[in-house]
């Protein structure tokens, strides 16, 4: 049932789905393909920005762990959950 992490990443990041999102620095997101809008929290905004720039999951997690002073474990597991969430909406 649950999509594998790398295929998920492939689908939403590499295939350009993520790139098409209109992301505002306020955390407001608009998906031009579905007409759906979203709000991101601060960490979500940072994560999305890093992923959009083509960073790997690990690099993104590392950056977040440094920025927010949380362990790498915490950062990468919550990042995975975030990615699954994106996968549901995109």
């Amino acid at each position: 049932m649950i999509e594998k992490m790398d295929t998920l990443l492939q689908r939403i990041c590499v295939d350009g789905r993520l790139a098409k999102l209109a992301v505002s620095e306020t955390g407001f997101i608009f998906d031009p393909q579905t007409g759906q809008s979203f709000t991101l929290n601060q960490t979500g905004l940072l994560a999305l920005d890093l992923l959009k720039r083509g960073n790997s999951l690990e690099m993104t997690a590392q950056y977040m762990s440094d920025e927010y002073e949380v362990t790498m474990d915490v950062a990468s597991s919550s990042l995975e959950a975030f990615l699954y969430q994106l996968g549901r909406y995109l």
Partner: peptide
């Protein structure tokens, strides 16, 4: 404050 990343659909 650390909060897990999250996206909220409207």
């Amino acid at each position: 404050v650390w909060e897990p990343p999250f996206i909220q659909p409207h």
